[in-house]
Simulated scan of single mutants.
Amino acid sequence: MRLALIGGGFVKHTDNFHINKRIVELVEKTNPKVLFIPTASNDNEDYITEFTEIFEKQLECHVNVLRCINNNPSEAEIKKMINSADLIYLGGGNYINMMEKWKEYKINQRLVEALQNDTLIAGISAGAICWFKCGIRTNYEGEGYIESPGWNMINKIFCPHYNQMDRANEFHRLLLQNGNENEHAIALEDNCALYLTNDTYEIIGEPSKAWEFQVIENELLKQKFIERAKTSI
């Protein structure tokens, strides 16, 4: 498993550039092939343009884009695009729409297979939540935030954009409300990423922006994610 989880931020902003630069370095190839999947943003063309300009012009990658909102890619096309990528980057946006569309096109199955085959995958916000047991997202049908299930490739609860106070407070409440002893969770602020392999991790960005949580005897324990050479995730 090689998975880079990004708490949030904008591709074109300076704060996120060093994260994307490090992720490209982790591919360990010259001019790597990057597949961008912007489904959560409704395949927003401005987002695609920003991503392509950064990754092609500044990071020297070859970018391909998998569009499945207005386009109707075949199963063979999707398989070829995912299997040929050195790095797959999952964009942020509407988590529910993303998950529904990926299920429709069986992109979810292909992504899990790619991860299991050691393809490097990066996901920001919605593109990161999907890998966890569950995560907190914006309530698109009302106010506040709500918990949604993921694929449970990481048996923890996840919160992106942890620097947003209202989201952070709701995340704390949900962890305590679940009432599960020894519940574990991870939260990342914007402009911070966590790179995971099967037995190691690396914080990309400021370590003070990465947090871990545990519920013990109905109390929420919070501490900063302390970088080590090796650990079990």
Results as ranks from 00 to 15, higher is better:
87 L>D: 11
77 E>H: 11
50 E>H: 04
73 P>G: 11
72 N>D: 12
97 N>E: 10
76 A>D: 15
56 E>R: 14
42 N>F: 15
46 D>H: 12
60 E>F: 09
5 L>M: 06
71 N>Q: 14
15 D>H: 11
32 P>G: 00
49 T>C: 02
65 V>Y: 11
6 I>G: 00
3 L>P: 01
115 L>P: 03
41 S>L: 07
12 K>G: 07
23 I>R: 14
80 K>S: 10
8 G>I: 11
94 N>T: 04
57 K>H: 06
61 C>K: 00
28 E>G: 08
6 I>R: 07
61 C>W: 02
16 N>I: 01
34 V>P: 00
41 S>P: 12
90 L>Y: 06
94 N>Y: 07
45 E>I: 15
76 A>E: 14
80 K>A: 10
57 K>M: 04
108 N>S: 15
109 Q>G: 07
40 A>C: 11
44 N>H: 12
76 A>F: 10
22 R>T: 14
79 K>A: 13
32 P>Y: 01
45 E>C: 02
58 Q>M: 04
24 V>Y: 15
28 E>L: 09
112 V>E: 03
25 E>A: 10
49 T>M: 06
96 I>V: 03
75 E>H: 10
43 D>M: 06
69 I>R: 06
92 G>E: 04
94 N>E: 02
38 P>W: 12
94 N>C: 08
75 E>L: 10
62 H>P: 00
62 H>Q: 09
114 A>F: 12
83 N>Q: 14
54 I>M: 02
77 E>A: 05
104 E>K: 04
96 I>S: 10
60 E>P: 00
5 L>I: 13
27 V>D: 03
20 N>W: 15
88 I>H: 09
79 K>I: 09
47 Y>T: 07
10 F>C: 08
59 L>M: 03
56 E>H: 06
30 T>Q: 01
84 S>G: 15
81 M>S: 08
82 I>W: 06
81 M>R: 08
93 G>W: 01
110 R>G: 13
108 N>K: 13
50 E>R: 02
96 I>K: 04
25 E>G: 05
40 A>M: 13
41 S>K: 09
24 V>C: 07
82 I>P: 00
105 Y>L: 07
41 S>G: 13
98 M>H: 03
113 E>K: 15
108 N>L: 13
62 H>M: 01
39 T>Q: 09
108 N>G: 12
45 E>F: 15
75 E>C: 10
110 R>I: 01
70 N>I: 03
79 K>D: 10
14 T>P: 04
85 A>L: 10
76 A>N: 15
33 K>W: 00
19 I>Q: 01
40 A>E: 06
17 F>K: 06
70 N>M: 11
46 D>V: 05
9 G>L: 00
94 N>P: 00
114 A>M: 07
51 F>D: 01
14 T>M: 12
16 N>C: 05
76 A>G: 08
43 D>I: 05
79 K>C: 05
67 R>G: 02
16 N>W: 04
18 H>T: 06
99 M>L: 06
110 R>Y: 14
8 G>S: 10
49 T>A: 14
96 I>Y: 04
95 Y>I: 00
36 F>A: 06
58 Q>R: 08
12 K>N: 11
